[in-house]
Simulated scan of single mutants.
Amino acid sequence: MSALIGAAMDPSYPGEIVAVLSNKPNAGGLATAARYGIPAKAVDQRDYQDRATHEQALIETLDAFRPDVVCLAGYMRLLTPLFVGHYAGRMINIHPSLLPLFPGLHTHERVLEAGMRIHGCTVHFVTDDMDEGPIIAQAAIAVERGDTPDALAGRLLRAEHRLYPHALRLVLDGTVRQEGSRTVHDAAPASGERPAKEAGTILVAPDAREG
């Protein structure tokens, strides 16, 4: 979330952060957003009798800000078809693996257990099935000898902070869009300018410099 806020502060970025919402009143991201003067609201799930009524309240709160794109950032509560369908084609998420490999939790441990030589992160459109939406962009890092899950996670986090703003830009400027179960890459974004890297993909070396 902080990476997206930082990117949006650049006048050349094709979007702005209009609000930050959480299902937990004590979420650190709310305080961070408030420091930047961004409206920050909690829609506490404990105040609602079931998931459906909570999600309806989330939708009403979000829609008041008229977002073009909804970005999930550390939102660990599974969303139902009600919510996903409302924002179909304009809700994205970041996941710490090179999907479709290693969906779900504990990705760093699973990468090491599998003996993978590369690891990475993926930004994808959100669909009803967890971590299975059409891929927008990915970043890869090398798995180094002696890596632990914590070391790997820390190094990958730097890549995530670069990838998410990049992927959001692709969606905002029209380079990438969702059509059904696939991602469509336009020949050129609406702005007429192609990002520095090939649309939809960047590679990040172990020291987080672009390859």
Rank of each mutant, 00 (worst) to 15 (best):
A19Q: 09
M76H: 08
F102N: 04
L78D: 00
Y13T: 13
V18E: 00
E16W: 07
Q138A: 03
V126Q: 04
M9A: 14
G120Q: 04
S191I: 09
R35E: 14
L4I: 15
G104N: 03
P11A: 00
A151S: 10
T107R: 08
E198A: 13
A190S: 12
A142H: 02
Q178H: 11
I202D: 00
A196R: 14
R162C: 06
P189A: 01
P100W: 03
I5S: 02
L82Y: 08
N23R: 07
P96V: 05
A196P: 11
P195D: 00
V143M: 04
M76C: 10
A151T: 08
L4M: 14
D150Y: 00
H119N: 15
G174H: 04
A31W: 01
T183I: 12
I136A: 04
R35C: 13
H86L: 10
A73T: 13
L101M: 13
R155K: 15
L156K: 05
L98P: 05
V20K: 02
R77Q: 01
R66D: 13
D207R: 06
L30I: 15
A31D: 04
R194Q: 11
T183P: 13
H166K: 06
R155D: 07
D131F: 07
A114W: 05
G133E: 00
G104W: 01
I118N: 02
M9N: 10
L21F: 15
Q49F: 06
A139C: 13
Y36V: 07
